[in-house]
Computed example of a mutant assay.
Amino acid sequence: MFENLLENFKTIDSEKGYWFVRTDKGENFQAFSDFNFIGIGWNYITNRELNDNLNNGLDIKQKIASRERLDLRASADKRKVTSIYNKLIHFKNLRSGDLIIIPNEGSNLLGFGTIADDGIFEDPNDRRCDYIKRRRIIWNKFLTFSELDNIYYAIIKTRHAISNVKPYQSYIDKTVDNIFIKNDAFHYVIDVTKRDDINVNSLLELMNSINNIADVIEQTLNLHDDENDRTVKLNLQSPGKIELIYKNKKILAILSLILLMPLNINSIDNDLNLSNSEKEIIIEISSRCQEDLEVTDRTFDELEALKNRINN
């Protein structure tokens, strides 16, 4: 039962990369966002040179030193050359599916996208952007800085042309997606938009009701769940997020559908191709949990939570 349900939800590869790419103080933000690419400077280093890249990049480093008028015999200059070289190699090695964040001027708007393929392309004739070496991007969303967790202050603080921000992946994942599977666990992120103080009793009621519904799902389907494998991450800075993480992926997948069901069960059914028997079980569980669902509906309203926002 519900064997194919999890195939309908996005799985995030734990090996994917997360990168913050500068836009030359916002100058290239519009071109990047409008025309679905990112780029990097140092045009005198070609894509072919990066792909050949013999002798640990010695030829490339010598070319960088020459063009930037740096002396590889001086330790400070050598570090500068190595820094440029490493940025170019990071850009070359971006993989399809890696997540990219770009800032506009002033970093009050950030774009979130994914690398669309595995190779650099060059466009020396496009004057909308001076960067010739480019990577194709599929943009997921653009968010104002006020909509984001304070952790993004640390992300935008870097001044490098391209920076590895994988240490912040757990924050980035729940910024981009609301429901996903990662590291063999199911994640359901609830956006709380309330700007006033959060009522503790409302929050406790919500968590208790959600746990009760999960218990009924476990008992109905005989899923042998260990409650120690259910965790919650709270980041309620008004607005903020509630992230439910269950090792028993099927329980949380069904729970998310039940929380959504009062909105439009037929829409959920059509989107996820539930069988009639699976749909009947969801309705049965919902009936048994009617009192808890009334609590969740009320507390969602009190928290101004966007429970129906699924990956959008």
Rank of each mutant, 00 (worst) to 15 (best):
E3R: 10
N4G: 13
L5K: 05
F9K: 02
D13G: 08
K16A: 15
Y18E: 06
V21T: 13
R22T: 04
T23I: 03
K25F: 15
Q30P: 06
S33R: 15
F35L: 14
I38L: 05
I38E: 00
G39I: 02
G39A: 10
L50Q: 08
N53Q: 08
D59V: 07
I64A: 00
A65C: 10
R73E: 15
A74F: 15
T82D: 14
S83Y: 11
I84P: 00
Y85K: 02
Y85R: 00
N86F: 05
L88N: 03
K92A: 04
N93A: 09
S96D: 13
D98Y: 03
D98E: 11
P103W: 02
N104F: 06
N108E: 11
F112I: 02
A116K: 02
D117N: 06
C129W: 01
K133Y: 01
R134K: 13
R135C: 03
F145M: 08
K157C: 09
T158L: 07
I162M: 04
K166G: 11
P167L: 11
Q169G: 05
K174R: 13
V176K: 02
I181R: 14
V192P: 00
D196M: 08
N201W: 12
S202D: 15
N208Y: 10
N212A: 15
I213H: 01
D215A: 13
Q219M: 09
Q219L: 07
H224D: 11
E227F: 10
N228V: 06
N228E: 08
L234E: 09
L234C: 09
P239A: 11
K249F: 03
A253H: 04
A253Q: 04
I254D: 00
L260H: 13
L260Q: 12
L260W: 10
I265P: 00
I265M: 05
N266M: 10
N266I: 04
N276K: 14
E280T: 03
C289K: 03
D297A: 15
T299V: 15
